Amino acid sequence: MARIIITGGSGFIGTNLVEYFCSKNHEVINFDIKTPKNEKYVKNWVQGDILNKEQLFSCFSDFDPDYVVHLAARTDLNEKKSIKGYAANTDGVQNMIEIINEFPKIKRTIYASSRMVCRIDYIPKDFDDYCPPNLYGESKMIGEKKVKASAKHDYVMVRPTSIWGPYFEIPYRTFFDTVRKKMFFLPKNHYPKKSFGFVLNTVFQLEKILFEPRENLESTYYLTDYPPLDLKEWSDMVSREFGIKSTTEIPMVVLRMVSKLGDLLQKAGWQNPPLTTFRLNNLITHMVYDTKSLEKVCGELPYTLQEGVKITASWLKEN
């Protein structure tokens, strides 16, 4: 049994991770500014802000953890003006590093970054090669660089790809809800491969990385299911869970016009139009990451794609 602090444990991945580690009888603290999504785990919650170093230090001092999983972050893509809007991803990471450096008892820390440190169509030559597409991605890049420069403790960096499942929010909850309402579509004759991850496989991977002997680990991993899924196959699976035969396909020329209209609506102030050029490009672009090192550590994943879809659809029907 280990003592584990999870920052951001009230978020999507964090909610699932708190539940998972508690089910394994670990002692878990969720340090988060927000109330837990699952009321069952309010008893594990310490309210605090990672930008408040005093609050953070107090939590570490009181709990004296063996392990840390740092998930707390601002994750939306809405900030357009200044990187300062993502201070949680830069200054918050710096606070974490400085505090964990003061606790030599901590055996390992996982820092969650993001696949968006590189744009979707950019293939980096290594984990020090960055090409962020927006301020969010830039903030995560800065966070990674701070860890590499200042962390004097055992750590592993993870880059979650596109993770989906119970407790999710925009954009993948929107995807499931849109399928359910028979409003989802794919560009005709475009069936890209995607490195996506079912969240219960993600928490399994985080557990493996957290407790694996140091000599078996690399410094950075993309978190994703393997092998990559076929977007059409996945959307058809989701459709069938809601009694729909298959995914609607629309000619690309129509979608390009609709996406340009979405761009205009976004500029006019609508934060989340159904389709924009950015989203359309993401939809049609292959997004596949090398998972050999991840597979070596984690082995076979506990949930198949079909099982993940069934669990998620069932959760949505109940919530």
Rank of each mutant, 00 (worst) to 15 (best):
48 G>S: 07
192 P>L: 08
291 T>V: 11
84 K>P: 00
232 K>W: 01
109 T>E: 02
98 E>D: 15
175 F>G: 01
136 Y>I: 01
284 I>L: 10
144 E>N: 11
14 G>C: 10
173 R>M: 13
143 G>N: 06
231 L>M: 14
57 F>P: 00
182 K>P: 00
216 N>H: 13
125 K>A: 13
310 K>F: 08
83 I>D: 05
12 F>C: 04
304 T>N: 05
156 V>S: 03
42 V>S: 10
174 T>D: 12
198 F>L: 02
314 S>D: 15
199 V>N: 02
261 L>T: 11
33 I>M: 12
269 G>M: 13
290 D>Y: 07
307 E>D: 14
67 Y>P: 00
264 L>C: 09
78 N>C: 09
110 I>H: 02
277 T>D: 09
26 H>N: 14
18 V>F: 04
234 W>A: 07
217 L>A: 11
281 N>E: 13
1 M>T: 12
76 D>R: 04
319 N>W: 06
199 V>T: 06
73 A>W: 01
239 S>C: 15
45 W>H: 05
7 T>P: 03
243 G>P: 01
9 G>H: 01
16 N>W: 10
283 L>K: 05
291 T>E: 09
83 I>H: 08
19 E>P: 00
292 K>I: 10
15 T>K: 00
111 Y>C: 03
263 D>L: 03
102 E>F: 04
135 L>A: 09
136 Y>Q: 03
162 S>W: 05
